[in-house]
């Protein structure tokens, strides 16, 4: 058996999103159906047992889809700029839950067809009232002329995936010094992304950072982590990795400074324009 896990940076990011106990009720409420399935089986009612098992599975699938929807929603809410989730997972979960509830009422609890449909609808309504609908509108913040919303979303998403790669590599390097250094670098990279989120015009100025430096950092860290994992690191390699990290950190600092200075420049220009306007009044 290999220990290798599938490389899936987008899910790695999503797995770090905490939704707490939200959605736990959806897993707990259908438990009696599972107990029912077991009792039916013990009584020898194979068909009823299979029906109850299938309906329980339906409830669980709805709960899992809902949890995924909650995670996407919570990540969407955390970000200043974000694309709305492509697939309405919460609505999908609500529909599946409503159908399963209706079927459970009809097949296992002896409700009539009309009453079962009504129960399904009430469950759907309850879900929407309790958990809300999926976010549908992109959060475009103050994206202005010069950059398109899609461009900003794509650049930020790609940068976050690279940061997740660095983070994953950091966790596999068991060296306190490198660990602290990489932590600082990740924090600085996140700060630069936050600046771009605040003012998407910065994207044009930060393109080189996002494409070249962040990518380079991810590649170097990943390959060092691989060598480290095989216990094949040498003193020379450690020293040069340390040097690379130093220069990466200073480049990140410079990039941040550059963005801040440009903001200052923007501010200066605005003040000059205002001064000219005031003179002409």
């Amino acid at each position: 058996m290999t220990k290798a896990t599938r490389y899936d940076p987008e899910n790695q990011i999503l797995n770090t999103v905490k939704t707490g106990i939200k959605g736990t009720l959806l897993f707990l409420m259908p438990l009696p159906v599972l107990i029912g399935a077991v009792i039916h089986l013990l009584k020898g009612n194979v068909f009823s047992s299979l029906t109850a098992g299938a309906l329980f599975a339906g409830f669980m699938i709805a709960a899992v889809i809902a949890r995924h929807g909650f995670k996407l929603e919570s990540r969407f809410k955390q970000k200043k700029l974000a694309k709305a989730p492509g697939m309405p997972f919460k609505s999908l979960a609500a529909t599946l839950l409503a159908i399963t509830t209706g079927l459970t009422a009809f097949l296992l609890s002896d409700y009539g067809l009309l009453a079962s449909i009504l129960i399904g609808f009430v469950a759907l309504l309850g879900f929407y009232m309790a958990y809300g609908v999926d976010p549908r509108r992109d959060k475009t913040g103050n994206i202005s002329l010069g950059v398109s919303a899609d461009e900003v979303f794509q650049a930020l998403e790609a940068a976050e995936i690279k940061i997740a790669t660095i983070e994953k590599a950091r966790k596999s390097i068991r060296n306190i010094e490198f660990d602290q250094h990489l932590k600082r670098i990740i924090e600085k990279a996140r700060a630069i992304l936050a600046m771009i989120e605040d003012d998407p015009k910065d994207l044009n100025r930060a393109r080189k950072f996002l494409k070249v430096y962040l990518d380079g950092t991810a590649r170097v860290t990943e390959s060092y982590a691989k060598t480290h994992g095989k216990d094949a690191t040498t003193e020379v390699l450690d020293t040069s990795f340390q040097e690379v990290l130093d220069s990466i950190e200073s480049t990140f600092d410079e990039q941040r400074e550059k963005l801040l200075q440009n903001d200052q420049l923007d501010l200066d220009v605005k003040i000059e324009v205002l001064k000219t306007q005031l003179k002409h009044l």
Partner: peptide
Amino acid sequence: MPYIVQKVIGFILLSATVGLVSLQVLFHLS
């Protein structure tokens, strides 16, 4: 309708349907 009231009603409706229907599966057995 205030958000919290809407949420509470939502949870009541969910429990009254999903919760009760699945409990009735058990009652139906006995």
